[in-house]
Design a protein around this nucleic acid. Structure first.
Lengths: 207, 207
DNA sequence: TGTAACTGAATGAATGACCATTCATCGTAT
DNA sequence: ATACGATGAATGGTCATTCATTCAGTTACA
């Protein structure tokens, strides 16, 4: 019985190994050992090493996206949506450090490695942020003079680099709430419309 | 005559090749060909492949740091300093795309590759931003409730990801001024002290 | 000045290590 | 007995690195 469970086990192992050693220095035999499986078994579930990496993206990041989408669907206030996005992202990265490492480091290389592969899942993820900004602008809550496509990069970059606090050992002391608070402080103050007619009543939704 | 110039030629070639193919898929023979030099010649100037990568960081990034340091030294107003840092960073990244690629992608892997190597030059670079924030806080220009060590990551991450606009083809249309303007808009509004000249527009003093 | 010996940079073919991938074989469930 | 997942040793290809050799310039001496 070709075990679907075994596939997940290999993906989990690969995530761990890629996180620790990086895609190129990771050996198939490392992944096999971590998954408690023979080297050859991996090729019953994946075509090659790249295929494993792509599967990590597709399946693991896919899960995160679905979760955030579900959460955002319960909310209509753009400021709140931003809060949720930021908080959830940080929570996930802190909790799942291995995945965080793989996203942060290997994701950026992927385009270079595998020309045919456009990481649509990932683009979808960052585009959600641009959409939130647009929504806020249409409601007059966010400044009009901000380009959503620049803002999404700005925010994602900030989130991504900040969450490296937890992967690069030293300053692990900060809590998700603390960091989310700081980011939202800056972001929300920075992009709120000067006299937003529909602005958050107390004008201060951070934290 | 052992040509110092040849060393630079190899570094320049390596920067280009690493940017295009990434450290691991780049072959020494690629670099040699790009530098118009024999494979073996490279080993007269560098110990090994890693050594080339580190040299790219040390020497090329080193130059950038020196330049920004020099520029910042002419200024005492923290807001202006932030403006200068941001603008200069973006200018450099747009101008020198290959180096930008190497920094953005390979830099993050370096720790994993070469355990002994701590990229002090780079830490120095991001710490400059933390120092600017601290300076601003001591002058009462920036909010006190912002952690400089979180802010530096926030800003660097944002800058880094935003400048990928120029390396990942698609949206190369944006100008440095345009993007710097957007970032500074958000950053300065976001971190200014409630009653500074660029005070929080809706008078919100959170926390 | 001509030439013979010397120096060390440059070359690139050859070496050897490493590792992704394959496949003949094994074990187990039905 | 048959089918099929699992195994892991063997294979083959890909480079990083080495090093015997070439080559250009410099010195020494007549």
């Amino acid at each position: 019985m070709k075990d679907l469970n075994k596939r997940s086990k290999i993906i989990a192992a690969a995530t761990k190994v890629f996180a620790k050693k990086g895609f190129f220095t990771a050996r198939i035999s490392d992944i096999a050992k971590e998954a408690k499986v023979a080297d050859g078994t991996i090729y019953l579930y994946f075509n090659n090493k790249y295929d494993i990496l792509i599967s990590v993206f597709e399946e693991e990041i896919g899960k995160i996206i679905e979760q955030i989408k579900k959460i955002l669907a319960t909310e209509t206030d753009p400021k709140r949506m931003l809060e949720m996005y930021v908080t959830r992202h940080l929570q996930t990265m802190k909790k799942n450090r291995n995945l965080a490492e793989v996203i942060q480091i290997e994701l950026r290389q992927t385009n270079k490695l595998i020309k045919e592969y456009r990481n649509t899942k990932f683009i979808e993820y960052t585009d959600m942020m641009a959409d939130i900004v647009r929504l806020g602008q249409s409601q007059g809550v966010f400044r009009d003079d901000i380009e959503p496509d620049i803002a999404k990069r700005f925010f994602f970059g900030a989130l991504d680099e900040v969450s490296r606090i937890w992967t690069t050992s030293a300053e692990g002391r900060y809590s998700v709430e603390e960091i989310a608070g700081q980011l939202l402080q800056i972001i929300l103050t920075g992009i709120s419309a000067p006299n937003g007619r529909l602005a958050d009543p107390d004008g201060c939704s951070a934290t």
